[in-house]
């Protein structure tokens, strides 16, 4: 099953009027794969994301999940964005349960999954806390836990750790890897941070400047846990940076 294609992006193109933003993007994601997307500033990463979330309709091309055109009613696409978005009127536990309730998952199963996530996050003692009582990083962790707990067909993350310092970032990146391994989710993770991309991904997609095309599809064959100070890691980082040159 490991090699089964889960997501297929097929000749995806998006125009706004005369402006071509995404130019014929095609790639496949295998089930349980962790993909990072990097690209220069303003290259259309957000548009790309909005196409995947189905907020925008593509001008041409299609997104397939399990060989069917993606349909939010049928497929389960989860999100985690940079701004934490826990519902302020719900406790941590209720926030985690929220996504599952919408998916009409039975109560017993909901409870089991919430407990599992809380345990993985090590946040059992914050079960009854409200988002206001959490730090920004704690709230973000709840959101990411929530995204995983729905067992999504596709989990999209848009710079969830954009504002964090490296100490925190490495901690959270390790946590996200733990969740990913535990749940076997298929993840597309968008970031501007090349070090983060290489640390996390099995494969990095490098987008070109606008109109965005896939410039390169780079396998990252480093063993985990990855050492960001190792020669190979730095080499890869330099290579990807050269491909992007956004500063």
């Amino acid at each position: 099953m490991a090699d089964k294609v889960k997501i297929k992006v097929d000749h995806l193109t998006k125009r706004f009027g005369d402006l071509l933003v995404l130019d014929d993007i095609s790639f496949e994601v295998k089930k349980g794969e962790f993909i990072c997307v990097v690209g220069p500033t303003g290259c259309g990463k957000t548009t790309f994301l909005n196409l995947l979330t189905r907020i925008y309709q593509p001008s041409s091309g299609e997104l397939y999940i399990d060989e069917e055109p993606a349909d939010p009613k049928k497929h389960n696409i989860s999100f985690a964005f940079q701004e934490p978005s826990a519902m302020p009127w719900l406790t941590v536990e209720e926030n985690l349960e929220f996504g599952l309730k919408i998916k009409k998952i039975p109560k017993e199963e909901r409870k089991k999954r919430v407990d599992r996530i809380l345990k993985l996050l090590g946040m059992e003692n914050l079960r009854n806390a409200y988002p206001k009582q959490l730090s920004v990083s704690e709230e973000q962790r709840v959101i990411i836990g929530r995204a995983f707990s729905t067992y999504p067909d596709l989990l999209l993350m848009d710079e969830p750790y954009g504002q964090m310092d490296i100490k925190m970032r490495f901690y959270l990146e390790d946590e996200v890897l733990k969740l990913w391994k535990e749940f076997g989710s298929t993840v597309i993770f968008i970031t501007h941070n090349i070090e983060e991309a290489i640390y996390l991904a099995e494969r990095v997609l490098i987008l070109s400047n606008k109109p965005a095309k896939i410039k390169e599809n780079l396998e990252i064959n480093l063993s985990r846990p990855r050492d960001v100070t190792s020669e190979e890691f730095i080499e890869l980082r330099k290579y990807v940076t050269d491909q992007i040159k956004w500063w």
Partner: peptide, 13 residues
């Protein structure tokens, strides 16, 4: 050096 400082920093979750 970044790694060294990072390891020496207290994590404030």
């Amino acid at each position: 050096l970044r790694k060294e400082i990072s390891e020496n920093t207290d994590l404030a979750l």
